[in-house]
Amino acid sequence: MHSVALYGRLLARAIATGIHSELQIQRERAREPLQLVTGSSGFSKTITKSTNTRKWAFGDDAYFISKNKTVDVIGVADGVGGWRSYGIDPSAFPRILMATCERMVQEGCFRPQAPATVIAASYQELMEQKVPLIGSSTACLVALHREERTIYSANLGDSGFLVIREGEVVHRSQEQQHYFNTPFQLAVAPPNQQGLVLSDSPEVAESTSFGVEEGDIILLGTDGLFDNMQEDMLLEYISKVKDHKEETVQTTASNIAEKAYQLSFDPEYMSPFAMSAMDAGIDFRGGKPDDITVIVARVTSLGET
């Protein structure tokens, strides 16, 4: 009887020790720094070409993926195509804006908790050029602070992002529009058109923060994505990201971009853009042909590759 009781105490102690060890492992893992494993893709509405090249522009869209010692940052910008009728390349402004943001991230010239300051500083640099870079664009940046395990975002306009956890959207950006199909935007106008061109201050960008967990997915895109794909469609594609391998994430980004591109030219599809048009009293049906940029980023521990 004594030996049975002793065995029972030893077994209970072993179980308790095992539980304690498992809890300790979980606590330590919860404190591990995080990183983003990313994939990117897109289409120009006029050139049927997609790519996973990191530094690229799709039509009048532009994006970047960068990091420094503290943060991983992803960003997109959507140029205003109306400048083309004035003989101005509308892709130049967003492309240089994103390239400047990328450089500032790499140099660590910003506070990780305030990505809006990167947009503001980059925009200021464009305005101060000896030969002003004429144009307009939206801008959306998401920064993952590795040690804090928190994303900080800044969104100006109708690009945006979703944070997806276990198949559900747990955080999202808010679209900023003056009126239907006219988003908030940064702009540099010719001297003779100052005050005549729609331009918003980077200070009005929506800024948010959100604690993320390993396994979360961040889906960032321009309006060409969100105007053409319903949220449940996006979640279906994201559900296929089962691991943190870069090729898995890249394949998902490519598949989403290809689907959005197909739907954008479907005249019978009731797209999110068409539904918004109807809400605004506009008779419109079908997808919205547009430049499309997609970045898929999986949150994983810094020790994994």
Rank of each mutant, 00 (worst) to 15 (best):
M1C: 03
H2W: 05
V4G: 00
A5C: 02
L10V: 11
L10K: 14
R13G: 04
R13M: 14
A14K: 15
A14T: 14
I15A: 08
H20P: 00
H20Y: 13
E22H: 14
E22F: 15
L23R: 15
L23N: 15
R29A: 15
E32K: 07
E32M: 05
P33A: 02
L34P: 01
L34S: 01
Q35A: 02
G39Q: 09
S40G: 14
F43K: 00
S44L: 04
S44G: 15
I47P: 00
S50L: 08
N52P: 05
R54E: 12
F64L: 13
F64K: 06
I65T: 13
V71T: 14
A77H: 11
A77Q: 12
D78R: 10
D78L: 09
V80R: 07
G87Y: 01
I88K: 00
P90A: 10
P90S: 13
P90E: 02
S91P: 02
M98K: 02
A99S: 13
C101R: 01
M104F: 12
M104N: 12
Q106N: 02
G108M: 03
G108S: 01
F110N: 00
F110D: 05
F110G: 01
Q113Y: 07
V118M: 11
Y123W: 08
E125G: 09
E128V: 04
Q129S: 09
P132T: 10
A143K: 01
E147N: 11
L156R: 11
S159E: 04
G160A: 11
F161L: 05
V163I: 13
E166D: 14
S173K: 03
S173M: 07
Q177M: 14
H178K: 11
Y179L: 08
P183M: 04
P183H: 05
F184P: 02
L186R: 08
A189I: 10
P190H: 11
P190D: 06
P191E: 06
Q194G: 02
G195M: 11
G195N: 08
G195T: 09
L198N: 12
V204S: 14
A205H: 08
E213M: 09
E214P: 06
I218T: 02
G221R: 09
D223V: 08
G224Y: 06
Q230R: 12
Q230F: 06
D232Y: 12
M233D: 15
Y237V: 07
I238W: 01
S239Y: 06
V241T: 08
V241M: 04
D243M: 04
D243Q: 03
D243W: 01
E246V: 06
E246T: 10
E247C: 07
V249F: 02
T251Y: 06
T252S: 10
S254D: 10
N255D: 14
K259A: 12
K259P: 00
K259F: 03
Q262P: 04
Q262L: 15
L263K: 13
L263C: 04
S264H: 06
S264V: 10
M270N: 13
S271R: 12
M275T: 11
A277L: 09
A277T: 11
F284Q: 12
K288G: 09
K288S: 09
P289R: 01
D290W: 05
D291G: 07
I292N: 09
V294M: 03
R298V: 02
S301L: 00
E304C: 01
T305K: 07
